[in-house]
Design a protein around this nucleic acid. Structure first.
Lengths: 112, 112
DNA sequence: TAAAACAGGTCGACAAAGTAGATCCGTACG
DNA sequence: CGTACGGATCTACTTTGTCGACCTGTTTTA
């Protein structure tokens, strides 16, 4: 368990946002999900940079969807969290859940 | 809501660890809690650096406890999460909870 | 009592993550 | 054409994350 690599806060959120719509999101989907669920506005730069890093770490992948639909013409990327990504997410969640549990007195119940 | 500042992953965990034992932890308490609940081993350097930064941001405070106890007459710091710290933690938790909820299909239930 | 062995902490430095603005490219529209 | 626009990339800078080495008083102990 030595060199476990932890997810940064934003990385974690991005990964989660990718999965939110069925683990096949476009850049726009992601930023909308982030804005909705985390009340967090991100710039394109921030988002794509993070997406790239996540891929470099093998936690995420994408395929190019040749565009001939809707707005027709432009290809766009569809992102998918990999197995490793899901695993990292689980670990991260479990750690946080533990910690929150122990601080519950002050933080208040998780449910609310 | 403009310049909301988000907690980094580690900062968050440290804050949580401080509260775990009643919001009055020593450096050692914190690193033990981190190790126990998050299965995460941290060096003194990492820990104290983060603690300092957290204080600089007003999310944490400490007082020096003059040492007069048994084997260690050394003074040590006792850390406490501030109101703002608790607030930041709550926000962070709520965002993550939302995101997790939407990704539940793949991550599995939160309860476990 | 000098010198290890310790506990608790501080420093300096560097890697990784977070963030945004300018820019680019192909398409739609007037 | 020229402008607006969605989608994405690049460049560059700030914050966080992480450590190892060093420092300072305390006990132990030969």
């Amino acid at each position: 368990m030595a060199t476990k690599s932890f997810l940064g806060e934003f990385e974690q959120m991005v990964l989660l946002a990718v999965m939110a719509g069925g683990n096949d999101a476009s850049g726009v989907d992601i930023s909308q999900e982030l804005e909705r669920s985390a009340d967090r506005k991100v710039s394109k730069g921030s988002l794509y940079t993070t997406l790239d890093r996540l891929k470099k770490k093998g936690l995420l992948n994408w395929r190019i969807e040749p565009g001939d639909i809707a707005r027709s013409g432009l290809p766009r990327r569809h992102f998918t969290v990999t197995e490793r990504g899901v695993k990292a997410l689980r670990e991260s969640r479990s750690a946080l859940l533990n910690l929150w549990r122990n601080a519950e007195d002050v933080l208040g119940e998780a449910g609310g």
